[in-house]
Design a protein around this nucleic acid. Sequence first.
DNA 1: TCGCCAAGACTTTTT
DNA 2: GTCTTGGCGA
Length: 737
Amino acid sequence: MSNALLDDLNPQQRQAVTAGDGQILVLAGPGSGKTRVLTHRLAWLIEHEGIPAYDIIAVTFTNKAAREMESRVVNLVQRSLEGIWLGTFHAMCARLLRRESNLLPFKSNFVIFDENDQQSLVKKAMREFKIDEKAHRPASVLASISSAKNDLLLPKEMPARSYREEVVSRVYTRYQELLQINNAVDFDDLLFYAARMLQENPAVREKYAHRFRHVLVDEFQDTNLAQYELLKHLCSAHKNIFVVGDEDQSIYRWRGADYRNVLRFEKDFPGCEKILLEQNYRSTQSIVDAARGVIDVNRNRTPKHLFSERGAGNKIVKFTAVDDHAESAFVVDTIAQYLGAKKAKASDFAVMYRTNAQSRLIEEAFMHAGLPYRLVGATRFYGRREVKDMIAFLRLVENPADEVSLLRVIGVPPRGIGDKTLMALQGAAFQAGISAGEVLLDLGSKGEASPFWAQVGRSAALLADFGTLLGEWNAAKSQLSIVALFDRIISDIGYESYINDQSEEGNDRWDNVQELRRLAYDFQERGLTEFLQNLALVSDQDTLPETSEQEKIGWVTLLTLHAAKGLEFKQVFIIGLDEGILPHSRSRDDPEEMAEERRLFYVGITRAKDQLYLVRAERRSTFGDYDYGEPSRFLDDVDDNLVIHQGQRSHSRRSSYQSDFSWNRVPASGRRAALKPTIPSETRYKAGMRVRNAAWGDGVILESRIENDGEETVDVHFASVGFKRLIASLAQLEVIQ
DNA sequence: TCGCCAAGACTTTTT
DNA sequence: GTCTTGGCGA
């Protein structure tokens, strides 16, 4: 049984999986079987070493990774992992904090504030101090607070050498007070409190350190200081820690991640065993070579000799489009041709970009072409107003102290409570030293007899009405299931008729509410607290469920480079390879950030199994008008021998304006022609021929030639859609008369 | 108090 | 181009 576990592992993988106790550092290149090593290690511990799952904690960064790990291990050991702590850092910490909440400044039913909630608290704190929001942007103050927490610093431990640092520290202090008043924590607090609690409380530390005989960590290069310290405390008794990572794929520096934790690990555990996984099973040699060319420029890394045994494979296609629309058109047309010819499934393709904003054009192009796609993140189901409203209602019922949610829903739908009344409410709460929610509840239950009735003045009745509702839901919470409570709230406030005006958008909004209700259904047994925690900690990366119809056809995946980490696709398009986008302009002046942009590109390249397209546009629209850009500096690091150039020849700024459509006239001279000359006699189509295509109707061949990859490429003008460049063998063009 | 309209800001990546 | 914010009138 145990041997079967090792059968399909290479020597390095096997060494990692079967390593003895102690500290193991696995540095795993992309596609080298990192997940497999981790899952087999878990299975090995359980099967071969006889460690009960109960004694193990395994942490990941995403829910998806955690789920995948669990199902794969269950599959290997053929039984459930009873009692194991397996989940994301944030979920594991939340669990820890709920258990030990008596030691902490909040109750065990605390809610988790997301970025919007955080911002509103920061704004509130800044307004209290009358700090100019123009001079100190709330988002940036919040970022500073967040990074202090990631470094495990309390407000008073922060440096205060400049006015700005002083401002941040003051806002940070107040911000924490506000969180406490709301019985809430933010994402960073989960890690911060967990790490500090174990650090400062030996008894608790001992308890968990003894409980977990083995600690396993995925994506170790993405840990920040808080996470690193937390791990150290967790393994402080048995010193059995197994971490897997790759410095070259560290792309979360802006969130406090520090790939130097890999070095720190080696320093803190001098006896650790270090194992390198260098064989790539995913990509062709061309892709691996391109990736190495890009990443080898970076310094301060463990040098790796990534190799593949899959053979050279296809050349990488570099495409330069005239503008961003043409960029999208190239992607869509190329995919459409493969699909039309049934030479690939939609799910073989992914389109990756640096910023979410870039997804819009691509998405439009897909929609227009009628190609099935799914967009990871960004559409933000959880960002939709109606979804946030409903979540806020639930959060308020769970935790009446949650003032952020209270303020969100007190006017949903409008019930005559405006600024004046709110001020009175908050004033009364402040004076009484309780939360606004509690004042509302008191008004609701006692009515005119409440001490607050007179205090809030004229609109006391309006507040009391809402307070009554809130009180009823609160009482119903223990009797009703989540879904029943959900329905109760909707009917009590008349939410359906409020958001659904029977327009298309109205129906959409209602559908979203129903979707949330469906999600709640899965938590019927686990309860409201868990449901809300899940909503906060589940990312948009965990995409919405797909219909079975789509499942059969598959879909093209559209996602950011960040979201792409850990995934693989047969054919990958990386778009927007322009200076200012990738690398992003905000990284221009900081070498560390520039190195991270490079790693991001590296991550993108190494997602591709068979075919990689590197796409850029000569000019693109920013807020309205067009700007000309330069090709990304990273393109220079991809060896030209690995590449086929297509599309617009790179023009200087001066000449581009006169040749918008020059991409239909790829010059036969120059570098490309020298590589492999065009052989006109081989073309099946000739300029002037009339052709027909099922999707685009009738058109005329403008030009046809054999490209460097040996494929006949035709430029066609269709009456319906205008110019298209097609690969003849895929396009299914019928010659007419 | 609320809804509408105009002006302004704004785009990095996310648990 | 799009989303948010703030001002103003009903």
